[in-house]
Design a protein around this nucleic acid. Sequence first.
DNA 1: GCTTGAATCTGTAGTTACTACAGATGGTAG
DNA 2: CTACCATCTGTAGTAACTACAGATTCAAGC
Lengths: 141, 141
Amino acid sequence: MKKVNKTSRLTIGKLSKETGVNIETIRYYEKIDIMPKPGRSAGGNRLYEEEHVKRLVFIRRSRELGFSLDEIQELLRLVDENTFTCAEIAALAQKHLDDIKAKIKDLKKIEQHMKDMLSQCSKDNTPDCAVIDVLSSKLKT
Amino acid sequence: MKKVNKTSRLTIGKLSKETGVNIETIRYYEKIDIMPKPGRSAGGNRLYEEEHVKRLVFIRRSRELGFSLDEIQELLRLVDENTFTCAEIAALAQKHLDDIKAKIKDLKKIEQHMKDMLSQCSKDNTPDCAVIDVLSSKLKT
DNA sequence: GCTTGAATCTGTAGTTACTACAGATGGTAG
DNA sequence: CTACCATCTGTAGTAACTACAGATTCAAGC
């Protein structure tokens, strides 16, 4: 009779492969208490359960959406306590969206600025460059 | 006869006010060798010349355009050696512009994702939220 | 000349989210 | 039992600053 692993415990390497989160990062998340401490083997190696996989995927997805670890901690706290409302979560998400919009706006301004400067460049081999002139305030920006 | 300050030497506080760069940041730039070491008063306080003002403004403007300090160091090196060509500078600027465009693209993808999630939220007081569902992979993203 | 308070000095540590080791064990296939 | 890979802990590095603490220096007023 084969022994069945009902709760399928994973080593950190397996968890890493399963979630796409690198090993050092997983240990880092444990250290900053965003991932719960897993059980250990007799020799001291970490052994993860299905709940760890779920949580790590949640974190990875949140990171992909640009949430900071602090924001993720807050989201997880609300979920863990099971006391969240959609209004509450949506407010956090909306704030994050506003931040992203602001960043895009900033970058677009810079983009336009860079384009303007570059359009004034001859791009030839002369030691005379509109970009340098702007940065040196020889021209108004 | 009044003694005229031909070279108008500034304390770090004055330089800071003139350029809008904070005092600690000026000292930091000196430490990482992006700003040249200024002269000192008898007692040891930094005294800056007009050239320092120009260079610090150059750095500030470059930073405002999102150039990294490494990139700025490279720009300054070319300018200092006075061996740059417009083609060379324009290439650096173009690369930076490409980076910015890529960042904008990433952020727009995230923005859309966030908007999609939020549009599915009821935003009411129920403990049921589309944002959490997506992050928990209860729904496909 | 002396005092006082603001400015400046140096040096170190903290921030964010990881990554990259070094040197020591653990686990496992043959 | 022996390789050899995986994992362990702990520390340091990354980027670009910011924030102190504790000691000096400077400038103005008397």
